[in-house]
Amino acid sequence: MKGALRIGAGLLIAVAALIFAFAVGRPVQVLPRVAPAPPFELVDASGAPVMAPREGSPITLYLFGAVRDEAGMEQVKRFYHEASRALAAAGYSDGVAFSFITVDPDHDTPEVLRQAAERLAVPQGLPLSFLTGSWVAIRMVVGTGFGVYFQPSADPELPPAYDPAVIIVDENHVIRARYGLDQLDSRTLVRDINLLAKEAGAKGASRWIYEGAHLFLCYPR
């Protein structure tokens, strides 16, 4: 009886110590599941409908902006080029895509977006789609869905005010990270994509370890 109690207590302590080591040491890290990304149906620069979520979606980096905002577009271009280069160097030539959603839908027609896409293109760049839609659709997707602030300017000649942001959405259409466009460096981006790719590739028992990592908030710092 006494021996069994000791063994039981020992096992309990060992399990507690293991859990504790897992939570503190964070040998497996994940990005938080922030919220489901909003479903949408928008149109791309060719006028073709684009829907999300859809089967087999890649990890997608959503960017937001207005073509009329030249400084903002320059920032998007710089980010896209640097991120493409870094991700390609890390071996993510496919499986990751970029989507630019306009916050200026009345101005940014598919034709305007097509011209912007040509200006942003880069030879070895990862796929980049430009999306627009009706004002209501954009408001629902960008504002309500992604939680990115934008507000039309009182002067219709000026682009809307908005928060430049990057939102990382995984292949299950779940928001996993959000950064300010000027906050996300290539190293952090590659780290985040690595974490998502490893988690997506986890099968069987390792799947449960990743769920444990979510349970114990094993997020990168």
């Binding site: 408001r139 960008v142 504002g143 309500t144 939680g147 990115v148 602030y149």
Partner: peptide, 10 residues
């Protein structure tokens, strides 16, 4: 306080 979209505020 600002409205992000219908039903969502910051």
């Amino acid at each position: 306080v600002r409205e992000l979209g219908p039903g969502r505020y910051e």
